[in-house]
Computed example of a mutant assay.
Amino acid sequence: MEFTVKQIAALLGGTIDGNESLKINQLSKLEEGQEGSISFLANLKYEPFLYTTSASAVIVDKTFQPKQAVGATLIFVDNSYSAFTKLLELANQSKHAAKVGVEQPAYLGASTTVGEGYYRGAFSYIGENCSIGNNVKIYPQTYIGNYVTIGDNTVIHPGARIFDHTVIGQNCIVQANAVIGSDGFGFAPQPDGTYRPIPQLGNVILEDNVSIGANTTIDCATLGSTIIRQGTKLDNLIQIAHNVEIGKNTVIAAQAGVAGSTKVGENCMIGGQVGLSGHISVANGTRIAAQSGIMKSIRTEGLSLLGSPAFELKDNLRSQVVYQRLPTLEKRVDELENKLNNQ
């Protein structure tokens, strides 16, 4: 696909400083820009690349003022990062839109309905009594069980496993090898020391605009539903246990784990390798730093937390300063004790 700078600026609502008739046919990083590519500058630590890039055009904030001459044509917008993200989204949509039809072999179960503009890759399996919306893309080697619902414009990447009764909304993305609806980790201890499996009869619901990363697993509920609310984004290699509920527009980074029946609020930000205990709640707007452990409910909204067990970020950082000084403090205490003992 090829567009002019003028067309891109119109799409982004930006103004142009330079040649508006230049042809753009690819997106690039600023430092790797080539003729015909467009890039962006959002973080000023990359500003030096602006003056050396070979990109034909660069998207910048309206408030940005170059410190020296720029060879590329500039497109000034309200937010360069958001504007470039929009271009990435359009490029991604174009890539998926090219995939249509059915590759063989592919299996479609009885009483399953599929909308228009769909794509089903080779060796994909769709069970019985499923409802697949319009423009859904199901890539090769995907397994979809029985009674699954998938909304319009959703993309299921290769090797994903989606089990019975899962409900997936519109405009969702399930990355490669994700597992949605596997059995929750439920075992009842027995008097003889063994564990008896507890049947997991619930399902998983992904609301609209949810993104699930590669190799992430979301367990079905014991009863009821495990729910990922609208707009939530889960990174790769995350474990969401049975009966968990994640609120709207929450983001969770890789290798985090949420234990059973925990409820995470809206607009939370959870760093990599964070662990949340079961049967607790996390208030809206909570920010949890990487490798933290949440052992009890967080009831105050908007807190920033760090540590295991986690407590407020500022207090934790102050504690780390004291912790680093402990060897020196211990030495001083020993010296004072020796002085007292020798008096």
Rank of each mutant, 00 (worst) to 15 (best):
100 V>A: 09
131 S>C: 12
176 A>L: 04
129 N>R: 14
109 G>I: 04
108 L>G: 07
342 N>L: 05
219 D>G: 10
218 I>R: 05
104 Q>T: 11
137 K>P: 04
91 A>P: 02
126 I>P: 01
121 G>S: 03
4 T>P: 07
13 G>W: 05
129 N>E: 14
301 E>R: 12
217 T>D: 10
176 A>Y: 00
175 Q>L: 12
145 G>T: 02
305 L>V: 01
92 N>K: 10
323 Y>K: 13
259 A>I: 05
159 G>Y: 01
25 N>V: 07
17 D>C: 08
170 Q>K: 15
97 A>W: 10
8 I>T: 00
269 M>K: 13
172 C>N: 03
249 N>R: 10
123 F>D: 06
243 N>A: 05
225 S>V: 02
66 P>V: 07
134 N>T: 01
257 G>L: 05
121 G>A: 00
97 A>K: 12
318 R>E: 07
80 S>D: 00
99 K>L: 15
211 S>C: 13
64 F>S: 04
277 S>E: 01
239 Q>V: 11
124 S>P: 01
262 T>P: 08
93 Q>A: 15
128 E>M: 06
18 G>T: 06
280 I>L: 11
163 F>C: 02
169 G>V: 01
198 I>K: 06
57 A>T: 03
83 A>G: 02
90 L>K: 11
325 R>H: 13
126 I>F: 08
229 R>F: 04
89 E>V: 15
55 A>W: 03
83 A>T: 06
343 Q>H: 14
203 N>H: 13
87 L>R: 00
288 I>F: 02
13 G>C: 06
180 I>Y: 05
209 N>L: 09
170 Q>D: 12
185 F>R: 11
233 K>G: 01
129 N>H: 14
266 E>A: 04
35 E>W: 10
119 Y>F: 15
250 T>C: 02
322 V>P: 06
180 I>L: 07
200 Q>D: 11
29 K>E: 03
29 K>G: 00
54 S>C: 12
338 N>H: 13
169 G>L: 07
97 A>D: 14
322 V>T: 12
156 I>E: 10
242 H>T: 03
341 N>Q: 13
166 T>E: 06
313 L>V: 13
276 L>K: 07
295 M>P: 08
331 K>V: 07
67 K>G: 13
320 Q>R: 14
97 A>T: 08
11 L>H: 13
50 L>N: 04
89 E>R: 11
236 N>Q: 02
205 I>G: 02
1 M>W: 14
223 L>C: 09
234 L>W: 07
221 A>F: 09
247 G>T: 04
316 N>L: 13
65 Q>H: 14
239 Q>I: 12
48 P>D: 04
333 V>Y: 00
37 S>A: 04
339 K>R: 15
222 T>Y: 10
303 L>N: 12
159 G>R: 05
